[in-house]
Amino acid sequence: MDERNALIDIRKSYGKKEVLKGVTLPLGKGQALALAGPNGSGKSTLLRLLAGVIPSGGGEFRWRGEDLLVNRALARKLVAYVPQGTPLIDELTAWDNLRLWYDRQSLEQSLSEGMLRQLGVGDFLKTTAGKLSGGMRKRLSIGCAMSGQPEILLLDEPTAALDLVCKQALLDAFDLFRRQGGLILIATHDLLELSCCDRVLLLSHGTLSPYDYDGDARRLAQVLEQA
């Protein structure tokens, strides 16, 4: 395993309950990895831990040889985290929300030829965030997260409650990010998201195991039930 890019023995407990019991996973550029598992298995906890929202109970998150759980300054530059909700300020316009994360120059550049253009955020810049549809809010949230040219994208059920058209648009944007050499770690129940990923990993009883997803949703459901 290339230990320059890997999750090594990640642990997390809440009191006596051990949620993550030594999660180890090799990582690589240009990969899309899906985290599947029953509700409460620790998928969101793992993403929050990797993003730095919650402290870890041990282990390393190595990228380019650096432990991002220790080197938070580097982690802020390299890691983009998109939580389950939409972290927006509803009273401000889409433009103002983006300006919270981007400086003017990089914002205009991204709108004209970068990820924001791919996400189609330019169509509703002057609309107040509170008035946007679910799909637009999600696109805007992801656009906000993508400021600063991250290399790792942590997504927690990014297309939940979106229609197929919106889902596909987002997945296309993620695919672009991956093809540009980025790493995507996506916690999901969605079959479409699973099918777009290179590898599916099952998180169960605090440990990670590979799963060969062949598109058979029923078999996956049975496996999750037994997990």
């Binding site: 929050r48 993003a51 730095g52 929202v53 802020r76 389950q84 909700g85 509803d90 906000c144």
Partner: peptide, 15 residues
Amino acid sequence: SRRSRELCRVLSVRG
């Protein structure tokens, strides 16, 4: 009343 808790998390991640 309309503050997003997720925004607080993302802000903390970004320093």
